[in-house]
Design a binder for these strands. Sequence first.
DNA 1: AAGCAGGATTTCC
DNA 2: GGAAATCCTGCTT
Length: 334
Amino acid sequence: MSNPVGSLSQSMVYEPRLGMTDESLTVMERSRTSGEPWDPEESKPNMETLERGVPGLYLSCFDMLLTEDTTWLVKVSDSSQTLTLPMARMAPQDEPEQCPVIDSQEQGLSPGLEGQEERSLEQVQSLVVGEVLKDIETACKLLNITPDPVEWNTGNVQKWLLWTEHLYRLPHAGKAFQDLTGKDLCAMSEEEFHQRSPQCGDTLHAHLDIWKSAAAWMKERCSTGDEKTHADEELWSEADSSCSGQPIHLWQFLRELLQKPHNYGRCIRWLNKDKGIFKIEDSAHVARLWGLRKNRPAMNYDKLSRSIRQYYKKGIIRKPDVSQRLVYQFVHPV
DNA sequence: AAGCAGGATTTCC
DNA sequence: GGAAATCCTGCTT
């Protein structure tokens, strides 16, 4: 049986035509450490813990806002080659320690086990690519855009830019790409990206290449039909309440987050689902998610909570009988 | 300091 | 025009 993950992994890594060159990815690695376009207060995962005891494998873990503020960079090095792949872990497992990359390393990436190295590298690549795809799928749901950049309108492009800028801590470059559709973007060379934004054009171009590759693979996976996942179906059929054509309402968005405790449980959760009582555990995080969805980078909890309070009059959300900080209640629980 | 309440105004679709 | 976004003052925890 063919292994589409493996084949994409190979092409992403070894075929420069896809743009997944070491250079472009190294640029991404460099650039993500500079600039603080969003709130700088976000927590940084403990990198020491993640890097401990992982010879030949460099794992960098930094925050992002999607689900659990965790993005991964995996860099596998040996004497002959270097593979660097950005991984946005937007759908993390319960325990970060169970990162598949670390598992793979334990299966034979250690120096001295050369016979297994090639196979292990492939395994790592497969896992990494799988994670990248998962993350792109999650990002698509959050941003309410399709995975294929070619299909993006100008608004989608701006959302993606905002998202990517946050991901790699780039200065805001949306204006430089204003009025461009996804098709326009995809037709642009790295040089053109650089001309429009000398500071982050390279990174954006490299990141777009990842999305293009991922979209191609997803479509291939759909057409072959042998590995179509639920995630795909959800993604391409736009089954979410947010995809009904109408712009999403704040209360719908909050419901969506609450429906996915695995992804968002650390920033918002039910206190009493039957009564519709929920608590915002991380107000800044929820506000950022909302800002991303609405393409409002200046969104904060002060403004979000004002919008929630507008629901009091409308009978959509209220404060529970016993008022508590950051706790609200849906007037009509499902 | 952060959250809460609600008025006023502006922006966006 | 409706729903938010934005900005604001004053109050509470």
